[in-house]
């Protein structure tokens, strides 16, 4: 009887702690959202106002009076093109590493992983100089290419673990009537890992969408992406919190939708296929 009671108390304590964790995680983004729908006067009041007349003025303003639309389109272009390139190159390489037996396969895989771990600041100086000489600075192409440095290794590892999960026999049956390895890849293996391919693509897209350091250095005005554009609302003269938070909320919407849609594969994605 007593034991059942302590178990129950324990459970209640756990639920309370879980609720606190939940609140701590969600509170800051909620503040972001609330600030974005306040008038400037309400946003600047202290103590903060919890009851106020919501307004969409900030959202209207950033579309009308700032190049927000341009940032949005740039981010979309860069992330889509990069994701396309990463999926084509990455799934081919991953299939090779997962399926064919050759000397050094493991070493190549770990070398590719080490590229992912490299601090981007180590490569940014030469990449900046190279892009400058190729006259690609401030174009989406510079980012589409540069984002391969971290997204390609990610996709290779993620897709490799998906390919490893399909039983080898299925592809071998496809190989019997000819010797088309590419056919086995294209017609048999790839359709089987389609959900994995989608998950990899979505995460790649999010990583491109979120990237800041390369975009800050390689773009100046024409090709500015959302994260860089949003920090532009921070000026020496002060921050307009309304515009900045409205931009932030808009930039987060696709991220949140995509994240929830790949929940199932997220642990695998975050550990590059090491854990399920």
């Amino acid at each position: 009887m007593n034991e059942a009671l302590t178990a129950k108390v324990k459970k209640i304590i756990f639920v309370v702690i879980a609720a606190v964790v939940f609140a701590v995680i969600l509170f800051p983004p909620v503040v972001l959202f609330l600030t974005s729908i306040k008038t400037e006067l309400d946003a600047l009041s202290f103590p903060p106002k919890w009851v106020f007349q919501p307004t969409l003025e900030n959202y209207k303003h950033i579309f009308q009076f700032s190049p927000f639309m341009k940032y949005l389109l740039n981010s979309l272009t860069v992330a889509s093109l990069n994701t396309g390139a990463v999926l084509v190159l990455g799934s081919l390489a991953a299939y090779s590493l997962a399926r064919f037996r050759f000397k050094g396969a493991d070493n190549i895989a770990f070398w590719i992983l080490s590229v992912r771990m490299m601090p981007p600041v180590a490569a940014i100086i030469p990449i900046y100089i190279i892009m400058r000489n190729l006259r690609l600075l401030d174009t989406p192409w510079s980012l589409v290419i540069t984002y391969l440095t971290f997204n390609l290794p990610f996709a290779v590892w993620m897709m490799r673990s998906f390919f490893r999960e399909i039983p080898r026999e299925i592809e071998e049956s496809a190989l019997v009537d000819g010797c088309s390895d590419f056919g086995a890849f294209w017609n048999v293996a790839l359709p089987l890992v389609a959900p994995g391919l989608v998950a990899t693509g979505i995460l790649t897209f999010i990583f491109s969408w979120n990237e800041f350091l390369f975009a800050l250095i390689l773009t100046g005005s024409k090709a500015v992406t959302l994260p860089v554009g949003i920090t532009g609302f921070m000026k020496e003269t002060g921050i307009n919190w309304g515009y900045m938070t409205a931009g932030g909320v808009l930039a987060l919407i696709p991220v949140v939708i995509f994240t929830i849609s790949v929940q199932k594969h997220l642990v695998k994605g975050l550990t590059m296929g090491a854990l399920k």
Binding site: P28, M244, V255, F258
Partner: peptide
């Protein structure tokens, strides 16, 4: 709770910084 846990991880880091600058 898992869904909530995921949000900070994939959220754009610049926006995380912005949120905390506000806080």
């Amino acid at each position: 709770l898992r869904t909530a846990l995921i949000l900070p991880i994939t959220m754009t880091p610049v926006i995380v910084g912005m949120i905390w600058r506000l806080m």
